[in-house]
């Protein structure tokens, strides 16, 4: 490269200085967003100190900041996650298996693939409208119920699950399939005994990461009429649902300092910790099984 300094002309010096300045500029840009987020996270962590305690985690919401808790929203979020996992895992894997193992190279297949990519880009608030129009109005499953919330957010993350499952299935070497066919296995037997077991860790990782996205979704919940606050845990599929992001949104409107820099911060940290645990499970699974393939 033209960076030899032995007898550099002024032109070279300038262009070298420019080169270094540019490198620092790009590095600075890279760090800017990361540092901004880190600063904000440290603020919220400091604010949450003293508020995030056992009482907060086990109490229902209350207008007095010192009595307020996140319990129903925490449990609601977990119920919602389980329901969404039960819905999206089989459907997502099914769709991915079809697209990777069965689909002919036809226009329909291309269309389905393009459609999935585009669905991943539809704003979440629009999925909320789908849930409102379809599940609340048409099917009458009740406004803001657990079932409606689960269905709506499942549709929202399904494209992400499908795409990541497809990637996992793609990574299974073709030779393994050939070996299976060579043993006289049918296509389904090959998928069941070779492709799915081999790609399972990848699929699980992708699904869990998608669940991490689901747990933070707020707009669809508001659109399907999730109540401002729910006290008590969901006690049936049609019970009204509360979730952590929804409760955070509700609290964001409480202007007193004790909420803004206390209860709310504790809620944000709780949500982030749950999100982080979900993502670490995904990463653990990936690392555990990555070495072998």
């Amino acid at each position: 490269m033209a960076t030899d300094t032995r007898d550099s002309t002024s032109f070279e010096r300038v262009s070298r200085a420019k080169d270094i300045a540019f490198e620092y500029l790009t590095l600075g840009a890279t760090l800017l967003g990361i540092v901004a987020l880190a600063v904000l996270l440290s603020y919220v962590a400091v604010d949450a100190v003293g508020w995030l305690n056992w009482q907060f985690l086990t109490s229902p919401p209350h207008p007095m900041p010192e009595k307020a808790g996140i319990f129903p929203a925490l449990v609601g979020s977990i119920f919602l996650m389980l329901l969404i996992a039960l819905i999206t895992f089989p459907l997502g894997v099914g769709a991915a298996v079809y697209l990777e193992e069965y689909a002919p190279d036809s226009r329909l297949t291309k269309f389905i693939q393009l459609n999935i990519a585009n669905l991943a880009g539809v704003p979440s608030v629009v999925y909320g409208l789908l849930g409102l129009g379809l599940f609340v109005q048409l099917v009458s499953l009740g406004y803001g119920s657990l079932l409606v919330a689960g269905f709506t957010i499942s549709l929202l993350i399904l494209p992400i699950v499908i795409i990541s499952a497809q990637e996992a299935i793609q990574s299974v070497p073709d030779s393994m399939r050939q070996a299976s066919y060579g043993m006289g296995a049918t296509k389904w037997q090959t998928i069941k005994n070779v492709v799915l077991p081999e790609s399972l860790p990848g699929i699980l990782t992708g699904t869990i990461l998608a669940l991490g996205r689901a747990i933070g979704e707020t707009a669809p919940l508001i659109m399907i009429g999730a109540p401002t606050t729910v006290f008590g845990v969901p006690n049936g599929p049609l019970a009204k649902i509360s979730a952590m992001p929804m409760q955070i949104y509700t609290w964001a409107e409480y202007p007193d300092k004790a909420f803004q820099h206390g209860v709310l911060a504790a809620g944000v940290v709780t949500l982030l910790v749950v999100l982080l645990s979900i993502n670490s499970i995904a990463i653990l699974i990936r690392n555990r099984y990555q070495t072998q393939s």
Partner: peptide
């Protein structure tokens, strides 16, 4: 909100929404 909060503390299996 205050009433529902107190009520749920006493009746944890009831789902009150506001």
């Amino acid at each position: 909100e205050a009433v529902a909060s107190d009520y749920t503390q006493k009746n944890p299996t009831v789902n009150v929404s506001v």
